[in-house]
Simulated assay, not measured.
Amino acid sequence: MRNIMLVIEYDGTNYHGWQYQKNALTVQEIITKAINKITSENVNLIGSSRTDSGVHALYQVANFKTKTKIPVEKLPYAINSVLPDDIVVKSAKDVEDNFHSRYSAKGKRYRYIIFNRKFESPILRNYSWHVSYKLSLEKMKNSLCYFKGTHDFSAFKASGSPVKDSIRTVTEISLEKDEDIIKFEIEADGFLYNMVRIIVGTLVDVGIGKIEPIEIKNIIESKNRNMAGKTAPPQGLYLLKIYY
């Protein structure tokens, strides 16, 4: 048996996230069916990150075991030939048998896009969060230092999340603005459910003056989800990189 690693890019607009669902179309289901068609096998496709409905990926990683003899360099061409236009396999390679796209990952990087002007963009509406009120980029940037490092991020995980260990290490975090687009990026050894979107929602609260940058420290220390901001919508979120 071969173990194949795929790097995948997709527009999540038309899908109910990555992971299989009984009554909804998902990215995992579409790619699995494509691989099955090409290899004439029923493979088990394992994804590195369970992106939510509407979330996009520039660098999702998945792996599957197969007996196919198709050369690895030709697999992306073959799989892409039966995939819809909003999903693309960017590369494929043979990896060791014990490689697991999720459990072998050492870190992840996400990007979030805020579209900050009075009126929505019909072009970017599925790829950003439209925030119509003026945001203070300086205050938002002054908040970033409190997220960096190792913390218990319980205040920034979705309510009801079953994960018991909420300690994560944020290694990089940045915020930039180019005209009406604010680009937020964050890299960590792992993320809690909705952690990035809750951080972004909290940063927007800072940007509008609802909370001050120094209060981020208190929110983290509180471990209380109710202290943080709302969960930013999914369409502005992009899985940017997985590190192994």
Rank of each mutant, 00 (worst) to 15 (best):
S91K: 08
E176C: 09
W129Y: 14
G160L: 08
V89L: 05
I123N: 03
N194L: 10
L6I: 10
A24W: 13
T51L: 01
V196R: 01
G149T: 07
L6S: 05
N194K: 13
K148G: 08
D189R: 00
R50W: 02
F153H: 02
N3Q: 11
G201I: 04
K183G: 09
V43F: 05
L25D: 15
I208D: 03
I214G: 10
N23H: 15
V61F: 00
E212F: 10
P71Y: 04
E187C: 06
I8T: 07
H151K: 09
Q19T: 09
Y20P: 01
Y146V: 01
K164T: 13
L58S: 11
V72A: 12
P122N: 14
N224K: 09
N44M: 12
Q235K: 08
N80H: 10
N23S: 15
S48E: 13
R109T: 14
F99H: 09
Q19K: 11
I114E: 03
I8N: 00
Y243W: 12
Y238I: 07
D52K: 06
K67T: 12
D52Y: 09
I182D: 02
E9N: 11
S53Q: 15
N218H: 12
G160E: 10
F191A: 07
A228C: 00
I70N: 01
S143C: 10
T51Y: 04
I123T: 11
P233F: 09
E41N: 10
Y244A: 08
A188I: 04
N23G: 12
K106W: 01
G107T: 06
S101N: 11
P84Y: 02
I30C: 10
K74D: 15
N36V: 10
T68R: 02
R102M: 08
P234T: 10
N226W: 01
F115C: 06
A155T: 02
N14W: 05
K106M: 10
I167R: 06
S143F: 06
K93A: 10
E172M: 00
S48A: 15
I219D: 03
S143R: 04
F191V: 08
Y103F: 13
F184K: 04
I114L: 15
K141F: 08
I198M: 09
E187Y: 06
G47P: 11
N80T: 07
I123C: 03
N36A: 09
M227T: 13
I216D: 01
D97L: 00
G47K: 04
K93W: 04
K183M: 12
I114K: 06
I214T: 14
Y133D: 15
N44E: 15
L175P: 03
E120T: 14
I113F: 14
T32F: 02
E138R: 12
Y193S: 12
Y193P: 00
Q235L: 04
A57V: 06
I173P: 00
D180V: 02
T171L: 08
P234C: 09
K223N: 12
L175D: 01
E138F: 12
D180S: 12
K67Y: 14
T51Q: 03
N44D: 15
I173F: 00
K37N: 11
E73C: 03
V170C: 02
W129E: 10
Y20T: 07
V7Q: 12
D178Y: 03
I31S: 02
A155F: 04
Q28K: 14
A232N: 04
K65R: 06
K93Q: 14
H100D: 15
K106D: 13
D189T: 11
S174I: 01
R197I: 09
S91Q: 07
Y146P: 02
I38E: 08
L175Y: 01
Y103H: 13
T39E: 14
G149S: 13
